[in-house]
């Protein structure tokens, strides 16, 4: 793991800065001890209708019942677990959400990660992607430091895909998106493949780094029977856990949580409207004509 000097990446960090964790000191300590890479995975629980509880034929969605793991997070957890299988990595899960949103974390724990952290506090409610990114970073700073942060591509309820890159920018970490394969982890660098629509890249990132995972990249494993039967403990973190020990910084930091810390606001929401249309039950010749003529016109 290279010791990076003060990196000028996207310009100097703007105030307020993050709590001064013992990152560098701990890093030296771990290098002496016999190093196991540390991986953090940011996941989210979404309403069941968006958790992939769909019927393959009709695509119906379940709207009631417990929440489920955001579908794009399954591959993210799987990537982390493969780093664990191959390189002995220690894997911690982080999820921010209301008190009842623990189900997905518990389910994910039965797949093999080491620890799970549930960030839950009324103060965190109403967070947009910037506030969420900050909160996750504070939690990871508390429990870290981490060498690799993994995130799913986007959530199925918000669907912004912004939290991962925002975290990378705030932490000054090199970023690789749409990771579809792990090539290697050695000498302080992670080499991965990235799958964009128009190209496939093989990329090396120095640690620490942050990646988002291509949804088709890693097929999530299923828990074994014994893992299912094991008790699963989730650690809870509240806003006060995340606030810096330095009391002077506390008010500034508290202003960055939840809705207060979210620069975007929802003005209004509504259901999509369908227009009234005249429908026709044409005879086959008429239907064929309509289609062919419209196509010819559209091409000209």
């Amino acid at each position: 793991m290279t010791d990076a000097p003060e990196r000028t990446r996207l310009g100097p960090p703007t105030a307020p800065s993050f709590p001064n964790s013992a990152a560098d000191r701990e890093r030296d300590f771990r290098e002496a001890e016999g190093y196991r890479p540390r991986v953090a995975v940011a996941i989210k629980q979404v309403p069941p209708s968006l958790g992939g509880a769909t019927d393959p034929l009709k695509g119906f969605v379940l709207r009631t019942g417990p929440g489920r793991l955001n579908p794009h997070d399954g591959p993210a957890i799987e990537m982390a677990l493969r780093l664990k299988d191959r390189y002995g990595a220690l894997v911690d899960l982080f999820s921010m959400g209301p008190v009842q949103a623990e189900t997905a974390l518990k389910e994910a724990l039965s797949l093999g990660p080491d620890r799970a952290f549930h960030l839950t506090d009324p103060l965190l409610a109403g967070s947009d992607s910037l506030a969420t990114a900050r909160t996750l970073i504070w939690a990871m700073d508390l429990e870290g430091p981490y060498d690799i942060i993994v995130s799913g591509l986007m959530t199925s309820d918000g669907g912004t895909g912004q939290v991962g890159p925002a975290m990378a920018a705030l932490m000054d970490f090199p970023f690789a998106g749409r990771v579809s394969e792990i090539v290697s982890l050695e000498d302080g660098a992670l080499t991965v493949k990235q799958l964009y629509r128009d190209e496939l890249l093989e990329t090396r990132l120095n640690l620490p780094c942050l990646v988002t995972v291509h949804p088709d990249g890693f097929t999530p494993r299923l828990p074994t029977v014994r893992a299912r039967l094991r008790p699963r403990l989730v650690n809870r973190l509240t806003a006060s856990d995340l606030i810096a020990p330095n009391p002077d910084q506390a008010p500034a930091q508290a202003a960055l949580f939840g809705e207060r810390g979210s620069p975007t606001k929802i003005l209004r929401t509504h259901k999509p409207k369908a227009n009234d249309k005249v429908l026709a039950r044409p005879t086959p010749p008429v239907a064929a004509s309509v289609i062919i003529e419209a196509a010819l016109k559209a091409k000209s």
Binding site: P223, T224, V225, R226, A227
Partner: peptide, 9 residues
């Protein structure tokens, strides 16, 4: 080997 298994709920 019971760990070569899947458990779904």
């Amino acid at each position: 080997d019971p760990d070569q298994s899947w458990a779904l709920v």
